[in-house]
């Protein structure tokens, strides 16, 4: 009975192992293809490690496209969006959790209600707002769509309610602390974990955004990496070597970043599922 159970566990491990490998195999091949010559791309079965690795694909991508600029745009956009979302969520989430006024409840319901509406629904009017501000084709235009995050406010609010006792705040007030001082010196440090998770979530949300950058940026120099790559591929539909090179240049750093920040990320995503 014991040995049979062990055998089954072993079989499950083998299955999960193969499944996990299959999940990441497309990405592994993408990186490998980036180093292949056009002849080798045709080889069957596809080789995991190119027999004749070449940097030609990378060189030609770099001469044909402003890839470093696109990466810079994406990094700057994602970082600014992350900062804006963490700041607005921290203060709003705290106020909504600890100040029981009826007017604030109404605000909270409004924020929750907009959370249901997908971004794609209202991005066209938002585009005209960006146009009116004259920020199309710029970092600020990109940022306009990603300044706040309903879920972020919700996440901070839940965290404050669960992890910061009212007594702590009352004690500080009795000692004569000002409201702002309390937020800055007591609340923020206690929220470090939640805000870390939110920061990672916000960064990746902007980093992987597609539809909004697609309509806001129309000049080659203002593209984010996603838009740049998507439009680059339409020009060279068949040249998979160069497409792979450009994609790999983006994937490898972002996957590395993810693996490093995995704990934060998983915590953030998992808490989205627990709100019910």
């Amino acid at each position: 009975m014991k040995t049979r159970g062990k055998l089954i566990d072993f079989a499950i491990d083998v299955f999960l192992f193969c499944f996990s490998i299959l999940m990441i195999l497309p990405l592994v091949f993408l990186v490998s293809n980036a180093f292949k010559t056009p002849q080798e791309m045709l080889a069957w079965p596809p080789r995991l490690i190119p027999s004749d690795p070449t940097l030609e694909n990378f060189r030609s991508v770099l001469t044909d496209t402003p890839l470093p600029l696109w990466i810079f745009n994406s990094v700057a956009f994602s970082t600014l969006s992350m900062v804006a979302i963490v700041m607005t969520s921290a203060i709003a989430g705290y106020v909504l959790a600890k100040f029981p006024f009826r007017s604030l409840n109404i605000i909270f319901i409004l924020i929750l209600a907009t959370a249901i509406v997908p971004f794609e629904v209202y991005m066209i009017p938002l585009y005209f707002q960006a146009q009116a501000l004259g920020v199309l084709n710029s970092l600020w235009g990109l940022l306009l769509g990603y300044l706040v995050m309903s879920f972020g406010i919700f996440l901070v609010r839940q965290n404050v309610m669960h992890s910061i006792p009212d007594e702590l705040l009352e004690a500080a007030r009795i000692d004569g602390a000002g409201e702002f001082w309390i937020f800055w010196k007591i609340v923020l440090p206690l929220l470090r974990g939640a805000l870390g998770a939110l920061a990672v979530l916000a960064f990746f949300q902007a980093w992987t955004s597609f539809a909004w950058p697609m309509i806001v940026t129309t000049t080659r120099d203002s593209y984010t990496i996603e838009v740049g790559l998507a439009l680059f591929q339409t020009g060279f539909t068949v040249d998979l070597g160069r497409l792979s090179a450009a994609s790999a240049a983006v994937l490898v750093p972002s996957i590395t970043l993810f693996v490093i920040l995995r704990r934060n990320f998983v915590q953030g995503v998992a808490s989205t599922g627990m709100k019910e």
Binding site: I225, Q233, S247, V250, I255
Partner: peptide, 13 residues
Amino acid sequence: IPHVVSLVPAAMA
């Protein structure tokens, strides 16, 4: 991992 990689590069694969 497939959930976090950006869409376009993953779609290229």
